[in-house]
Design a protein around this nucleic acid. Structure first.
Lengths: 336, 336
DNA sequence: GAAAATTACTAAAACGATTTCGTAACTCCA
DNA sequence: TGGAGTTACGAAATCGTTTTAGTAATTTTC
């Protein structure tokens, strides 16, 4: 590997001068700078991030904490879109991203230790169990953090508007004449709470009753659990005419159950999903859903994190809401 | 941050001794070692990867090159599964993973430079344009590389058996009595070539003709292009009774076209996809497809890479084939 | 034309670890 | 008891870069 020393030897200047030339300091004469730059290019010089980091304490590396065991991982379409967006925004700003696990080498440690080990300038956290002690430890540490879809008061968070999404999906059903609207939601997280709240508010605002059996819990991204919940819903003495599902993917379980009973979508049951990333649009009929702006979610998270990293004193924690929008597919029909 | 020096001061031994104790060298007395370890734990010591790397020249960091602009990115279900598997296997072996882009800071450079900059011990390459000069530069460099679904002769590669997959899917159609079988394939890559070859061989082996118009090109993961190709296929004077699609996801475009024409799957047209990661199994009817073992693909790629990294002299390039298996869904019907 | 200011550079320390080589102290035997 | 061998440790160099403080040489200023 060619180093600054090689360049300094060849150019007949000191390493300090080379470093300054390379970094565009202005106490280097144009001729020297030119010579150094030229030589660096000829030798195909690449700086050494580790050495640089050691001196500057800046790794230009952002940690990504995106899963823990209980969650569905990188293969979740919604999160893979966010990850993609995080990656692109980070790269556009000169940062790399590294996944944070809770081991170093083969030793078990904590997420925080891992961040320190890799000297991450900051961390984006999403799709984890935010009650997890290791996650809390990381959030409370001095490592800059931004969370997605969850909020702590000492860190910026970027949130999709779950309450509104749910409210609008419910209202959409109501606008189509439905009055018996059920909600199969995911596990009990903050996101879920907001969605339930949005659903309930929409019902209330329109003077509609919500029988407790119209709210039922399943598991996000889990087709089987949703299928079971759907079955239970349809078995009710007074079944709903419309069902809101936890997410587009899991909806497929509900769909299977509905179709198997010889019922028709949306003829007999109107349905909607949540996420709107991709699947909804290629299904036939297209699934009405709440389209989350994953692109903005990832991008803003990274922007806020970098702001926090580069302006540690002025950047203050923000609570940011990213608007989604209703995707009107073909699964909601006027109820008559 | 607490460093080795802090520990050495507190324990009254030299930094050298601390380092050795921490790394389990055997020229340290049990008592000293114990003292050091204990103190390190108390102070919550975390080693500094950068400093370590600088001396040892090992980053324990694996680069992942998974996309370039022309490809569909991390959001491709097949690759997100592979990525997940790569990540887990790497972590299990004490490596972290970092995405490789072709810029450092905000300067445009090459993938290779980026790898050097971050001192990646090795790189896993998948889902890129393998003809790209930057990719070639990386593959030809001294950075250990493993490729997925493409093979260079100086690097190990892990390949799904595209020829066999295609052969079996075709044979499956034939076994169900189909004789007019069309293949809508993806862009012209090595993977595609193999699949076409498998398809043709299967047809030949069973004494079946392949009219040129039964082979048509679309774009992987692109619903619209597949829909168009399907339309063209169905418009043929003598349309096929069975169609093989490029992948499960893109199949959705074909499905839409078929259904819109009032045709039934599999009543009127039998179909199969490719990948078998997730979607196929939640569709209704379930999509017959070739199930690739993404888990093994990622895992083996990482294992081979680490082998190459840790045993540079003995590890030789291997061409590894990972078997897939037929997933028999409900979209292939006996043709009468 | 001397003092002050500017310019263009360098020496050297430092970041946090690892590793080689040396050595003092102790143990072992014949 | 004295030489060989072993044990447990430390000094110091080193990895590649950045940065501070200093300094010669030049230019400016009055």
């Amino acid at each position: 590997m060619v180093t600054i020393k090689d360049i300094s030897r060849i150019c007949g200047v000191s390493p300090a001068t080379v470093s300054k030339a390379l970094n565009g300091y202005d106490d280097i004469s144009p001729e020297t700078a030119e010579l150094v730059l030229q030589t660096a290019k000829e030798l195909n010089y690449t700086p050494n991030a580790a050495a640089r980091l050691l001196k500057t304490n800046r790794s230009h590396n952002i940690g990504v904490l995106f899963i823990d065991d209980s969650m569905s991982g990188l293969t979740h379409e919604y999160f893979s879109h966010i990850l993609n967006s995080v990656k692109e925004e980070a790269e556009a700003n000169g940062y790399d991203i590294t996944f944070i696990s809770n081991n170093i080498g083969k030793e078990k440690t904590s997420f925080l230790q891992h961040c320190r080990y890799r000297n991450c300038d900051g961390v984006v956290i999403a799709n984890v169990d935010f009650q997890n002690t290791e996650v809390l430890e990381l959030v409370k540490s001095n490592v800059p953090v931004v969370t997605i879809d969850y909020s702590f008061d000492n860190a910026s968070s970027v949130n999709s508007d779950n309450e509104e999404g749910s409210y609008k999906l419910t209202s959409n059903m109501i606008a189509h004449g439905h009055r018996k609207i059920a909600f199969i939601h995911g596990e009990h997280t903050l996101v879920t709470q907001k969605r339930i709240s949005g659903y309930k508010t929409a019902m209330e605002d329109h003077g509609l009753e919500v029988p407790p059996e119209y709210i039922s819990e399943a598991i996000y991204h889990d087709v089987d659990s949703v299928r079971k919940a759907t079955a239970a819903m349809l078995d009710l003495p007074d079944p709903p005419t419309a069902i809101l599902f936890p997410d587009d993917y899991a909806f497929m379980g509900g769909q299977a159950e509905i179709l198997e009973r010889g019922l028709n979508i949306p003829g007999d049951v109107s349905v909607s999903g949540y996420d709107g990333v991709n699947l909804a649009k290629i299904l036939d009929p297209k699934l009405t859903t709440w389209e989350q702006d994953t692109d903005a979610l990832g991008r803003i998270a990274v922007d806020k994190l970098i702001d926090r990293i580069e302006n540690p004193r002025t950047a203050i924690p923000e609570y940011i809401v990213v608007k989604g929008k209703l995707f009107e597919g073909e699964t909601v029909k006027q109820f008559s």
